[in-house]
Nucleic acid binder design. Structure first.
Ligand SMILES: [Zn+2]
Ligand SMILES: [Zn+2]
Ligand SMILES: [Zn+2]
Ligand SMILES: [Zn+2]
Lengths: 174, 174
DNA sequence: AAGTGTTATGTTATACTGTAACGACAATTT
DNA sequence: AAATTGTCGTTACAGTATAACATAACACTT
């Protein structure tokens, strides 16, 4: 379906930051938000969120299913998709349309405009606010008379870290 | 998979222009381009392109398969996907990632940056150049050190025609 | 305690989307 | 002629997602 390379754990940029705090921050934020909103971050939903935050790479639904099965042996596709639906509704994750995959959202669970930079090499997804891009988009919509419901801007390419770590690797820059 | 409504032929805005010229223009342009490039716009590819141009709505691969079967009884999924791959390579159609669907490209078969405005109501896709958006994106990529491979910007909402024709229909503007 | 409503989950089956692999065939090149 | 290339037929399968219905868990009322 996609021309993108397979996700590759080797390409994770784990060393650049203390990722354990990414995970715990995301989880505690989610717990607080769900409590405030009176919605239930059930064990299944919590676990799916944790699995998604295991990396900054976009994760596929069936990968999640495989990973959750040891813990939740009854898990079926619907189990995962329901949890994903919930997490998306609550603004805790993004669906990456162009990958059929899911990634954690750092933006505290509010709906917001997003620019997703998706690395073809390491599959990590960087989320940026990109105020000026969004402003330019708004102008464009106004011109077109288009009423926007979602601005999920997904762009594929090579992230700064991958470009640097393989500047001599011509294939990436094609 | 998507929260979008099903494609609905009733919602096509056929009256706004002489769509028969859209189709014939697209086909003759494609024929010329392929001839120039020395690539083959075979009967199957030609037919798929024609079916895609039957409307300005994004069309799904298996819809194309159903529609081509009466004419090409041997048609299988691979038949359609191969034709789609070819047409995408030649820049004659776009893949709409967020719909898993395909739409004709008006831009004469050259690779280019695109802003696709996708109407949730009529499923028509409007392609815009959006120079300023693209410039703002370039700046953002430069800042992020991101090397872009594709800029397929897809935005979902309600098109001007649908908004107008159902201004009293609150559901659309939600 | 028993009944009721709501949300979440289990379960089965199925639909939809996309690709791999191989062989047949024709046109072109060497 | 032999090799190469491009297209298509064919089979089989992999991967993605949802429908439909049953059950469980819980909170709330009576
Ligand atoms: Zn991290
Ligand atoms: Zn990368
Ligand atoms: Zn038209
Ligand atoms: Zn519309």
């Amino acid at each position: 379906m996609n021309t993108h390379a397979e996700p590759n754990p080797e390409h994770q940029h784990t060393s650049a930051h203390d990722h354990s705090t990414c995970i715990s921050d995301a989880l505690t934020t989610a717990e607080h938000l769900c409590a405030e909103r009176g919605v239930q971050l059930t064990p299944i939903r919590h676990k799916v969120l944790e699995l998604i935050w295991a990396s900054h790479q976009a994760v596929k639904a069936y990968e999640l299913l495989d990973r959750i099965k040891p813990l939740q042996s009854a898990a079926k596709p619907a189990t995962v998709y329901r949890a994903l639906d919930f997490l998306i509704e609550q603004g805790l994750i993004h669906r990456v349309e162009s990958l059929n995959a899911f990634v954690g959202c750092r933006c505290s669970g509010h709906q917001h405009e997003q620019l997703l930079l998706i690395c073809k090499h390491c599959h990590e997804v960087e989320e940026r606010t990109a105020t000026e891009v969004m402003q330019a988009l708004s102008d464009e919509f106004k011109q077109a008379g288009f009423i926007v419901h979602s601005k999920a801007i997904e762009v594929h390419g090579i992230c700064a870290k991958c470009a640097e770590s393989s500047a001599d690797n011509a294939e990436l820059l094609a």
